[in-house]
């Protein structure tokens, strides 16, 4: 339970003159739910982008199961069992909900050109199985009836769920969720977090969640990390973190800063 599955050490990243992350080190333990909080611009999403390979860090290392994976491109990270969702949804808008989820299974699908052209019974069987799996995942996130709808025809809450199903279909070991409840009211947020918790158990995931909704995250997370201005200011149980004076200062501002 407590072995580190993913570790970031001394990650640094600057954009132009802005230091988005300065020597951030976070360890992710297998099977836990880790929450990351921090005010806007504190570097949360940048950290995700570096872990998932969408950006290369200026310094520091990312290691997965003890292997150095720093700067590996995202498609390789996906193959290693890392999946993510995006803060501003990134669905495939020209594809149906089912196809979106099927896209998540890209790495397991028959990909040889000849294989696809001949489409031998074994290939067809694999395709059918993949469709069934994708449908099962859609059912699991409550979109079973919307398989044929285009992503653009779903409501906001539904698109969030669809993105979750797509990420799950990569069969990840680690799932990074970037603000799963952004833009939702309390009831919707609770529903989606319950779904997330359920999914985490069912698929035996390690879960990392960025959230602005602190009470919701306190409810969900087993451990929390707070970032501010590109640095880890506090790490511990949710209760410890939300009572930490640094965190309160970061969120509410202090007299000195104002």
């Amino acid at each position: 339970m407590n072995t580190p599955i993913l570790a970031c050490e001394n990650i640094e990243k600057s954009f132009g003159g802005v230091r988005a992350l300065r020597t951030v080190s976070v360890t992710f333990r297998e099977g836990e739910i880790l929450g990351i909080i921090g005010p806007n611009g504190s570097g949360k999403t940048t950290l995700f982008n570096i872990i998932s390979g969408h950006e290369a860090p200026d310094g520091g290392t990312v290691s997965l199961n003890g292997h150095d994976v720093t700067g590996k491109p995202p498609h390789k990270m996906a193959a290693l069992g890392l999946a993510r969702t995006f803060q501003n949804l990134r669905l495939f808008e020209g594809m149906s909900a089912l196809e979106n989820v099927l896209g998540g299974g890209h790495l397991r699908a028959p990909r040889g050109l000849l294989e696809q052209m001949l489409r031998l019974p074994s290939t067809a069987a694999r395709d059918r199985a993949a469709r069934e799996e994708a449908q099962t995942l859609l059912n699991a996130v409550g979109l079973g009836e919307h398989a044929r709808n285009f992503a653009t025809d779903l409501s906001y809450g539904q698109t969030k769920r669809l993105e979750l199903a797509r990420a799950l279909n990569t069969q990840p070991r680690i799932l990074l969720l970037d603000e799963p409840t952004a833009g939702m009211n309390d009831r919707q947020a609770r529903e989606i977090l319950e779904l997330v918790k359920d999914i985490k158990e069912r698929f035996a995931l390690t879960l990392v969640v960025i959230e602005h909704n602190v009470p919701a995250l306190v409810w969900l997370a087993e451990r929390m990390v707070a970032l501010d201005a590109g640095e880890v200011v506090c790490e511990g149980t949710p209760e410890e973190v939300v009572q930490d004076p640094h965190v309160i200062a970061a969120y509410l501002g202090t007299g000195a800063e104002a």
Partner: peptide
Amino acid sequence: RAWEMIRDDEVAARAVGVD
């Protein structure tokens, strides 16, 4: 499907393992 994913959103296509 990989082609369509690239057309619709390259970043997300990468994230699900498309080279």
